Each structure stands twice: as C-alpha cells, then as structure tokens.
Amino acid sequence: MAKRILITGGAGFLGSHLCDRFIGEGYHVIAMDNLITGDMRNIEHLLSLPNFEFYHHDVTKFIHLPGELDYILHFASPASPIDYLKIPIQTLKVGAMGTHNCLGLAKAKRARILVASTSEVYGDPLVHPQTEEYWGNVNPVGPRGVYDEAKRYLESITMAYHNFHGVETRIIRIFNTYGPRMRLNDGRALPAFIGQALRGEDLTVFGDGSQTRSFCYVDDLVDGIYRLLLSDYHLPVNIGNPSEISLLDFAEEVLALTGGEVGITFKPLPADDPKQRKPDITKAREILGWEPKVGRKEGLRRTFEYFKTLPSEEWSRQPKEFVSMK
C-alpha cells in the first residue's frame, strides 16, 4: 500500500513541485492550500490521478484528515517580500499556529514531519557563508520580521515537539530558489527581473547591487528535501546552491538571457535587506549525499522558457512596488 504524505502549501511554487516528486515516487499525496498565494494551475495536471487529493483548507485552523498518515511536509507560508507587507498577520499565523497544528497532526498520526524554514532566519548575517550553527542577526520589528521570526518560531516549536513529545521531525533551511511556477510578479529578484525584461522596462536593482545571493534550481531543492525527509537527522540542514553572485551581476545575466535592450535602474536599499547570502552545505553533502546539479545558466534558461509561455497579460502586470531582492 502506498505511503500517504500531506503537503501543506501544495498549490504553491515549491509545494507543487514536491507533489510532482512524491507522486513520481509512488506516494499517495494529499495537497492542502488556502490559495492565498498558491494557484490551482500548479497542480491541475494532478487532480485526475487516483493517488492525489486536494483540500482547500487554512492550516491555521484545526486540521482533520481521515486515515493513516506517514509523512507531513509543512510548506504553507507566504514567501515573498511583497507578501510580508500585504499579509503580515497571515505570515505570522501560518508560521506559528499553522506549524503548531501540523505538529499536532504529526503527533496524533505518528507521522514524520519536515518543516520548511529559510535562510532568512540568519537575517543580515555577520557570518559568511552561513552554517547551521550560526544563530542569525534578525530585526524582529523590521519589515521582514514577520517572516523571519515566524520561521525562527517554527524551528523552536518543532524542536520542542521532537524533544518533549518524541515526534519525528526534520528542519530544512531553504536558500534562494527559482524555477517554473514562481509567481512572476511577487517581488523576488528573478521573477522581478524577468518580468521587467519581458515588459521592456529597466531592471530594478536596490542599493549598488553589491549584495549577494545564491540561487538554487527548484529540482535540486526538491531532491534535497526528499533526502532529508528520509534521513535520520533531526537538526536544521541548509539546502541551497553555494554559487554566490551579486545582484548587479545577476541582473546582467538576466539581460543577456532575455536579449532585452533595456538598462538597469538603481533604487535605495530596503530596510534590513541582507548584504550577503551563501549557504554552507557541508552537512547536506555529508549527511544526505546531496549537492546541486543544475547550473545557474541552465536553470535560468528553463525558467525563462516557462515565463515566456505565460499569457502576455500576466507578465504585463507588475506589482505596485518592488520591495526587496530576496
């Protein structure tokens, strides 16, 4: 009998790719999403499958699922800077109440749960690259605090359930990830750049563009999640691509990819925007035998090809303001 796995945030960017992976591995997948940032188009190709179910539900409310459950992947959360400003309370609630409900379900079902944390727990880091032992430099009352602190709480309550209730838990710290099904206009660096290029606009770079990010292609990330879930390691693990690049150089790469004849516009750096971001993936290599395989050039090509297939009216819309380059 197929193992049953619940994936919260299952209609989102990462959640939908996880649904695909676990369907491909022979699991019975239950996706759950309140669609506040998720999109049914991401999973419509799965709806007719007998080993796939979808529940339209908000995980900050009590979760009831009939039958046995083997695994839970908790990926329900807004994940872009624009979301933090538009829905800050919901961002905090899904990290706190939503995680509490998922952990309670894991305890009741005796299921193993993997929770999605983030490199944002490191804040604007004073250690580079970031190892799992670094505690971070986070402003709890800044504009990013609702997301950063929600994820730090997520880690704390997960460890409490592991230590006090004996729940089998796994914690992944996700670094910048990109690929098909990203929301084109969510304010993050790659979709923001590609959206502007498609509209024939100058690309917006904040500050002088010297701040760095490390971009991991979604297929690599999903493989890391799969390996961590099935591992015996319960402490946080960084999953990301350590290939570091400045946002100015990244904008230049996108311009070269899209063939646009536009330029680059500079705007003031947002509050608490991290100056450096690069994962130390020693633990992932040693414990999971994992490291990224898709280079940035190939990953960008695949992502751009996806965005070009979207209806023109979708990429012609732009957010009211690009607020960060997460």
Rank of each mutant, 00 (worst) to 15 (best):
P242C: 11
Q276I: 11
A150F: 09
G200N: 00
D202F: 05
D39L: 05
L85D: 09
K109V: 09
Q196M: 06
T303G: 04
G195F: 08
K93M: 03
G224W: 06
G38Q: 01
T212D: 03
I30D: 04
Y27Q: 14
Q130A: 07
P279L: 11
M97T: 03
L300V: 15
A256K: 15
R188D: 07
P268A: 14
R170V: 13
E168H: 04
T177D: 02
G10Q: 06
K326N: 06
A256M: 13
T303L: 10
G289N: 09
G10M: 15
A79T: 13
F22S: 03
A108P: 03
I194W: 11
A256C: 12
G145Y: 01
P242L: 10
R317F: 08
L221T: 11
R301G: 08
I113E: 07
A256G: 14
F62A: 03
I157M: 09
S324M: 09
H100S: 09
K275T: 06
I245V: 13
L230V: 09
S117C: 00
L105A: 04
G136E: 00
I225N: 00
G67C: 11
E149Y: 08
S316E: 04
D280S: 12
H100F: 12
Y27M: 15
K107D: 11
V138Y: 01
L235H: 02
E298W: 02
G240C: 01
P279Y: 00
V262F: 12
M40V: 04
I43Y: 04
I30A: 10
E252H: 15
H45P: 13
L35C: 02
S210H: 11
G98D: 08
G104L: 07
L300C: 14
A116M: 01
E201G: 00
H234R: 02
N163K: 03
P236Y: 00
I281R: 10
P81M: 04
V218Y: 13
P140C: 03
V218P: 09
F307M: 03
L228F: 12
I225W: 07
G179S: 10
N34Y: 05
W315N: 02
M1G: 09
D83N: 15
T8E: 09
G26N: 07
F52C: 10
R110E: 14
F164A: 10
K107Y: 15
A2V: 02
E321P: 06
S312P: 05
K275W: 12
R188H: 11
H165K: 07
A116E: 03
S231R: 08
G9Q: 06
G98M: 01
R317T: 05
P236H: 01
